[in-house]
């Protein structure tokens, strides 16, 4: 069975095969006719909804707004995390402080902060930003400090012997050797914030002009346009996969893989 062998050996083909099975099961359940189109739309109407919402520009606009918010929150969050981590590196007392607040806030789901965010910042972009920054900053600090603490003394001494001091030592020795941890921190921050964003928009319903994919789902739900809800879910999944498997994978390839810090991924 050469074809079957080929399929089972290639990772991408293997995954495509599983997805095809899942879609087949979906369409089979739809075709039994036991569920209304409002509950379980068939794949063709989801596809039509997806194409329609892309061609009217609605999907693009909502996606762009969601990504813009995440980008802004990532910039603020990583900036704050950088400052806090740097200060913690300089002063052991401050390190204890950062450790304490990280321990307190890290387990708190971002969406749980929503009522407080609304009280402080009112409805709109700032409340969502607060939640996103919250879901970004703690995992980032946690991973970065672990990373910096794991830099080996030998490497630091070698750096010092080469005449590296201060910032130069940080940028040439400490950051590269802590990079796997920092990257993991970013991965967790990204997935946390992506989830929080969609959830937050659905809970208090962002306003029409300032709404991302969560708002799109919320709105379509009220007009009972189930295929559009599924189309938006599809886009959310797709972006999640793209960021994790393409963007982060690429950064990994350029950095820690090139620096020989991890072994080549299995095919």
């Amino acid at each position: 069975m050469p074809i079957l062998k080929k399929v089972t050996e290639n990772k991408i083909l293997r995954q495509a095969f599983f997805i095809a099975i899942l879609l087949g099961v979906w369409q089979y359940i739809v075709s039994t006719g036991n569920y209304s189109e409002l509950i379980l739309p068939n794949l063709r109407s989801i596809w039509t909804a997806l194409v329609d919402s892309i061609s009217t520009g609605e999907m693009g606009e909502r996606t762009a707004y969601s990504l813009y918010l995440i980008g802004k929150a990532l910039a603020i969050g990583s900036g704050l995390a950088l400052i806090l981590t740097a200060l913690a590196m300089l002063s052991p007392l401050f390190a204890d402080f950062v450790k304490t607040i990280t321990t307190i806030f890290n387990p708190l789901p971002g969406v749980a902060l929503l009522p407080i965010a609304l009280l402080w910042f009112g409805i709109g972009e700032n409340s969502i930003l607060l939640i996103l920054v919250h879901s970004i900053i703690w995992p980032l600090i946690l991973n970065a400090t672990t990373g910096f603490r794991s830099v080996s003394r030998t490497q630091l001494e070698v750096g010092r012997n080469l005449g590296l001091r201060g910032l130069k030592l940080v940028s040439s020795v400490m950051v590269p050797s802590a990079f796997p941890y920092i990257l993991t921190g970013f991965k967790i921050s990204w997935s946390n914030s992506w989830r929080s964003l969609v959830a937050a928009e659905m809970i208090f319903g962002a306003s029409g002009g300032q709404g991302g994919l969560g708002w799109l789902i919320y709105q379509k739900r009220f007009f009972l346009q189930t295929p559009y809800v599924f189309a938006a879910l599809f886009v959310i999944i797709l972006i999640g996969i793209l960021v994790e498997n393409v963007i982060f994978a690429q950064i990994e390839k350029w950095t820690i893989q090139r620096w020989g810090m991890i072994i080549q991924k299995e095919k």
């Binding site: 009112g122 409805i123 709109g124 208090f204 319903g205 962002a206 306003s207 029409g208 002009g209 919320y218």
Partner: peptide, 23 residues
């Protein structure tokens, strides 16, 4: 006016309006 519309439960929105907050 769809761009400035915001979905809020009646009691929340009434409280917000009477306190001249957000909306």
């Amino acid at each position: 006016l769809d761009d400035i519309g915001v979905a809020m439960a009646h009691p929340d929105a009434a409280a917000a309006l009477m306190n001249q907050k957000d909306i």
